[in-house]
């Protein structure tokens, strides 16, 4: 995608003008078709209980997808989030369960672990200039190994205080949903209203030109790596709290690809320089809705995975085939 998003200039937090919004986010159309189809076929898709279930499932996805999307827009990538999620959950659970620390301390411990992973990624990619693909692919394995070494046995029984992180209700909404909403809004505000948000796009489009414009081309992506690590660990703590368990070998396995799928479906280009938080939200909702609908229809897991994969490739093909408007 080389066409720009003029809304970037005059920031609009919510896309205005129906047609433009649809053209920029073709996923809107897909959602508009998907929701009634699932409602008609399952009969319970739109039940409040089910919707809240979708929202809770989608929340952890959204929390990681937002910083990851920013990272991809700036021209980088993080494949290690699944393992960081596991590490975050384990650290939080270990602090809360084994050491009877308060939920706040447990959460902070998880976030710190995520920040360290993110900082290592950021240092290697931004300061040493190594390929983000290779570095974070390595970290995907290395962090998983570290988690298994530190916590060889599954952890559970984190206590009622810790369960609050994933289970509390705020204004009728589950806490993870509220956190995800905050992350989404923060991401959108960051992109639209801060200089650094513009720098993210500039670095993603043309790193050399950004450097010659006097922008600190290492600082912002480094911060985004740290933010992505922190977000992954936060998602891990939430999952551990909801499930009251964390397993080094399996927690968050494959999560990195699901998040990346949501981000790419949301219109963020892997080449950097384009994307929006609204798109990411749609990508997350689409994936969450698809999984949930297919589960309600008793579609076997393997077929669900296939559907997810097909959706990603179809999305890419559509974006490629779509007429390039001369905007």
């Amino acid at each position: 995608m080389t066409t720009a998003d003029p809304a970037l200039t005059r920031p609009r937090l919510i896309a205005t003008g129906g047609l433009t919004a649809v053209r920029r986010n073709p996923l809107l159309v897909v959602l508009v078709v998907m929701v009634p189809v699932f409602q008609l076929t399952t009969g319970s898709f739109l039940d409040p209980a089910n919707l809240s279930g979708i929202a809770t499932d989608a929340a952890t996805l959204a929390i990681v997808a937002v910083p990851l999307a920013l990272l991809v827009i700036s021209g980088y990538l993080d494949l290690s989030v699944g393992s960081t999620l596991a590490l975050g959950g384990l650290v939080a659970g270990w602090l809360a369960g084994q050491h009877h620390q308060s939920p706040a301390i447990a959460l902070l411990g998880a976030l710190a672990a995520g920040a360290v992973v993110g900082a290592v990624n950021g240092f290697l990619c931004c300061h040493l200039g190594l390929s983000a693909f290779i570095v974070t692919l390595g970290m995907l394995t290395a962090v998983r190994g570290l988690a298994q070494q530190l916590f060889p046995l599954p952890l559970s029984g984190f206590g009622s205080g810790f369960a609050w992180i994933g289970g509390a209700r705020v204004a009728g909404l589950a806490a993870p949903v509220v956190i995800a909403a905050l992350v989404l809004v923060a991401g959108a505000l960051f992109l639209a209203l801060t200089p650094a948000g513009r720098h993210v796009f500039a670095i993603g489009v043309n790193r050399e030109a950004a450097h010659l414009s006097g922008i600190h081309i290492r600082r912002t992506p480094f911060a985004l790596f740290v933010a992505t690590g922190v977000a992954a660990a936060l998602a891990g703590a939430i999952k551990a709290s909801v499930l009251d368990s964390a397993v080094a070998g399996t927690s968050g396995a494959g999560f990195e690809l699901t998040v990346l799928t949501a981000v790419l479906l949301g219109g963020v280009a892997l080449t950097g320089g384009t994307g929006s938080i609204l798109g990411v939200l749609l990508g997350v909702l689409f994936l969450g809705g698809l999984q949930n609908g297919l589960t309600l229809l008793n579609v076997p897991t393997f077929w669900q995975q296939m559907a997810q994969g097909v959706a990603l490739v179809a999305g890419a093909a559509l974006a490629y085939a779509a007429p390039r408007t001369g905007r």
Partner: peptide, 28 residues
């Protein structure tokens, strides 16, 4: 290679180094 951000808007291109000096309390 060194100057332009072709897919970004004219305003983004011309004002990129000016965003921080113009911003107030970190907000554009």
């Amino acid at each position: 290679a060194q100057g332009l951000f072709p897919s970004l808007s004219a305003q983004d291109n011309a004002l990129l180094p000016a965003l921080r000096p113009l911003a107030r309390h970190g907000v554009r």
